[in-house]
Design a protein around this nucleic acid. Sequence first.
DNA 1: TTATCTTTGTGCTATATAACACGTTTTTAT
DNA 2: ATAAAAACGTGTTATATAGCACAAAGATAA
Lengths: 233, 233
Amino acid sequence: MVKKELSETEIAESIPDLWQPLTDAQKDYLAQNFTIQKYKKNETIYCEGETPKHLMCLLKGKVKIYKDGVGGRSQIIRVIKDKEYFAYRAYFANENFVTAAAAFEPCTICLIPMTCIVKLLEENAQLGLFFIRQLSIDLGISDERTVSLTQKHIRGRLAESLLFLKDTYGVEEDQCTLSIYLSREDLANLSNMTTSNAIRTLSNFAAEKLIIIDGRKIKLIDEEKLKKISKIG
Amino acid sequence: MVKKELSETEIAESIPDLWQPLTDAQKDYLAQNFTIQKYKKNETIYCEGETPKHLMCLLKGKVKIYKDGVGGRSQIIRVIKDKEYFAYRAYFANENFVTAAAAFEPCTICLIPMTCIVKLLEENAQLGLFFIRQLSIDLGISDERTVSLTQKHIRGRLAESLLFLKDTYGVEEDQCTLSIYLSREDLANLSNMTTSNAIRTLSNFAAEKLIIIDGRKIKLIDEEKLKKISKIG
DNA sequence: TTATCTTTGTGCTATATAACACGTTTTTAT
DNA sequence: ATAAAAACGTGTTATATAGCACAAAGATAA
């Protein structure tokens, strides 16, 4: 565990959503319980079944939250981008983790003990509203996702994933190359399909000039068409 | 809109989770904003796309939350039993409803304006923790469900639904007849399959003596076996 | 009661997608 | 630099499940 001393200003900039509603005393308290940890590419951050202990905020990097299902098939449930909070749901629900988390790329994460968060929550209603909002948004996404993954066809699911990756992690300077370079397997696990089918469907999209593939680099060329494919099924 | 005057004691018994953390002044305030509404069997409670205005608490009856997907296929996202709260997520997320709700059977529902709930939340941190807990539990369920519905096979999904219905709505005096009588179509929509396949698989379960079917009445005979089927896939 | 509509049940066919096998390319490690 | 291991790509086959058609039973309405 790498522990790094940050000034309060640096902390404030790292976790504005959490910081902003706090009183000065609460800020001090939080600063004292704030630690930083780094993870290597592909490193596991937490596993299914573990007991949650910390709220995490991704300061830098990209993280996947996933679940290993029947027959070794893994399903990516959601992805985290920088400045996003995660790992707190299970603690609030008084459960062990039902998902696992791993780093897509090298990550810097800040950890705050959940006991500390709960203490702050008990005395700061605005902070509570932040978590309520966040959980509500995530629950809506999860519900939508359930229907997408079960009802859309392969092409629709993959198109949706590509658009989702653009929305989440953005694009490079050319405005169309996805900023995240995923393996075909991860792309498949995100879209609920086998790796072969992810590869095949990706090739089809390329043949149809909807995207350009260069290894793991994916350029979205015809976003309108992709949206249509995602929507129809 | 049927409005019914209830004493504070009656209200307190109807919505204990919400009531209990409040101060006396807050209780008064809530009581003044508390209305009751009845819905007939199969009546729609809210539709996808509508703007959420009220927190709802199901006092009596059974409710389904569902989503109409591609090609008229409906997916039941979750079900509500009495004393459960619903319809608040979208408001907190500042969205319109992404799901719809309808009554499985005649329902009595209490409505509280969300503006009123937010006001209480701003001054009562304990109430915030209640919603955080509830949303956290629901998000975990939704994530689990995504994987079940996408990865399990038909038999596994149906077995899971039957066990889930027992858990949620319970059984009659004989300890094995499900207390909820669903149409084959609703059962299919809950389990992500076509109506024909729900009928067929249900018949198979009956032939294997795992359940006994008598119209819409379903008796769970071999729960252990059903659990195994649900787990394996 | 009769007629109409909905739900249930069953068989057959079509098809989307998984599963497998195998070769090639790229990455990682020694 | 070389070997070993992942990741990628493609063709073929197998199969779970959807889709459809139609009959029977039950519910609802006139």
